[in-house]
């Protein structure tokens, strides 16, 4: 390492301390949930569990894994994330490329951008949304979770901004070499924007993985629920003023905080595993460094 001034040294120390503390602050709640998931139900109900399991047990995990719905819904989720992210990314790139052009090069761009952008702001609400999806025949199929949200407008806008930041010389050089728009997009823009693409891929994946409401409303059978929809039916709070006489046995499930914690943790786990992998693409300026001014 090169020489550091004392001021710089101090800054580095403070900076590391600060960020590590901040990370811990973000990590602790998850640890709490993890501890809860390994604790006995009685300890959890009494609020004894902090950051370490009380009366260690793996019951909740056995309970969760034993449920056939759990594994089935994981499979639906995996399909959804893979297909959905793929569709999202293809459309995002396809839209971001032309829309990143100057008005001179693509006259309609501003008009298009606004057409897309307005969809972020205005929506007709649940009922018409459901009816359109129903009339297009998607109900109760995995495509109902993918097609209606196929265009992630926020991501398109992000990416088009990144595309605009790329050196114009590259694009021009590409055209001079006789490449068309498709080749330029694929050979120049995409490889140069890997960090941005990785970011957007992450968002698309997380979006698909986390959304639950559409699954509940658009699927006609719980067998087709993705994981988060399924978890929602388990974790959702029971309205205790409505506990009905018909099934006192349900009450046992109300206190099942530990298995809920286990389910939350398992729900977050896959994304936690994928994220560090995606970070490989965040390496600063790998490609840009090789570009001549």
């Amino acid at each position: 390492m090169q020489y550091m001034t004392p001021g710089r040294r101090l800054f580095v120390i403070v900076n590391y301390t600060l960020l590590i503390l901040l990370s811990l602050l973000c990590l602790l709640p998850l640890i709490h949930v993890l501890a809860l998931s390994f604790s006995s139900s009685a300890a959890a109900t009494a609020g004894y569990v902090k950051f370490w399991p009380v009366e260690f047990t793996t019951n909740s995990y056995q309970f969760v894994l034993k449920k056939p719905e759990f594994l089935a819904s994981v499979w639906v989720s995996v399909q959804r994330v893979v297909l959905g992210t793929l569709v999202n990314m293809v459309l995002t790139v396809l839209l971001a490329y032309p829309l990143s052009k100057e008005v001179k090069a693509f006259r309609m761009r501003t008009f298009y951008v606004w057409i897309f952008f307005l969809t972020i702001l205005f929506s007709g609400g649940l009922i018409p949304w459901y009816m359109v999806i129903k009339e297009t025949g998607l109900l109760n199929s995995i495509w109902a979770l993918i097609i209606p949200g196929a265009v992630p407008v926020f991501n398109v806008i992000l990416l088009l901004n990144f595309f605009r930041g790329l050196p114009k010389e590259l694009e021009e050089a590409s055209f001079i070499d006789g490449a068309g728009h498709w080749t330029t997009m694929w050979r120049i823009f995409v490889p140069l924007s890997l960090p941005a693409l990785a970011t957007i891929t992450l968002f698309a994946m997380v979006g698909h993985w986390n959304s639950w409401f559409d699954g509940l409303i658009l699927m006609n059978s719980p067998d087709n629920y993705p994981l988060q929809s399924y978890l929602q039916t388990v974790v959702i709070r029971r309205d205790l003023s409505l506990v009905s006489q018909s099934s006192l046995a349900d009450l046992a499930n109300v206190s099942d905080r530990t298995s809920k914690a286990a389910q939350i943790f398992m729900g977050a786990l896959p994304i936690l595993l994928v994220y560090p992998f995606l970070q490989r693409f965040f390496m600063k300026g790998i490609v840009l460094g090789s570009v001549k001014e």
Binding site: L126, I127, M131, K134, L216, N220, P222, Y225, T233, I236
Partner: peptide, 22 residues
């Protein structure tokens, strides 16, 4: 159809509402 979630304002109620509306 079958939907899981019978709370007040929950998925069951909403699914019923969209079914009624459509």
């Amino acid at each position: 159809w079958v939907v899981s979630g019978d709370g007040v304002g929950g998925p069951g109620e909403q699914k019923m509402n969209v079914s009624i509306a459509s």
